[in-house]
Every structure is written in structure tokens, then in C-alpha cells.
Simulated scan of single mutants.
Amino acid sequence: MHIIFYTKEICPLCDDAEALLSSFEVDYPHTLEKRDIHSREEWLAEYQLQTPVIEINGEQMNCEEISFNTIEAFLKKHSERN
């Protein structure tokens, strides 16, 4: 499974979300493509107030939705599609 992870420097929420994703690597193998929102203006405009954002197969969850349980459910949902 391929995950796109929108992040930025000095972002404790991003660090926590990335650690949670890492903790699920064994049960839900994935590749993580990290995208710094400051590297493209369109990403900055879209995600500035929402980082971190996790995207799988075009579906996204933002910082307000991210927790251990929601990440696990999101990964499970998308692993069943493959």
C-alpha cells in the first residue's frame, strides 16, 4: 500500500502521526511518500492548516481526524481493497 503523507518541518502532530504509521508497518505493510507542504505552493495553500494529512488511494484524513484508532481503521479499509 502506498501512503502519501503531507507534512512540514517543526510539526509535533506530524511527528506523532508518522510514528503511528510506522507502528502499523508490520500489520499493514506500506511505503510512505513524505511531501513537505512548503515545497509546492499548491500544497501549502491546500494543507497549511490541516497538516499532517494522510492520503491513500485519493482518500485523505487530516490532523483533526488522526488518532491511533482512526489510522488503524483507515489502513485496514485500504488494505482490504488490494
Rank of each mutant, 00 (worst) to 15 (best):
I3Q: 07
I3V: 14
I4L: 01
Y6H: 10
Y6R: 05
T7G: 11
K8L: 09
P12E: 09
P12F: 06
L13Q: 14
C14V: 09
D15F: 03
D15T: 15
D16G: 05
A17K: 11
L21E: 03
S22A: 14
S22I: 02
F24S: 02
F24E: 01
V26Y: 00
V26G: 00
V26S: 00
D27T: 08
Y28R: 00
P29E: 00
T31M: 05
L32S: 10
E33P: 05
I37H: 03
S39K: 11
S39V: 07
E42T: 15
E42C: 00
Q48S: 12
P52E: 10
P52R: 12
V53L: 10
I54C: 10
I54W: 07
M61Q: 15
M61K: 15
M61A: 12
N62V: 15
C63M: 08
E64F: 13
I66A: 08
I66S: 07
I66K: 09
I66G: 10
S67D: 13
N69P: 03
T70N: 05
I71P: 06
I71R: 00
L75D: 08
L75Y: 05
H78K: 06
S79L: 04
S79W: 01
E80N: 13
E80K: 10
R81H: 11
R81K: 15
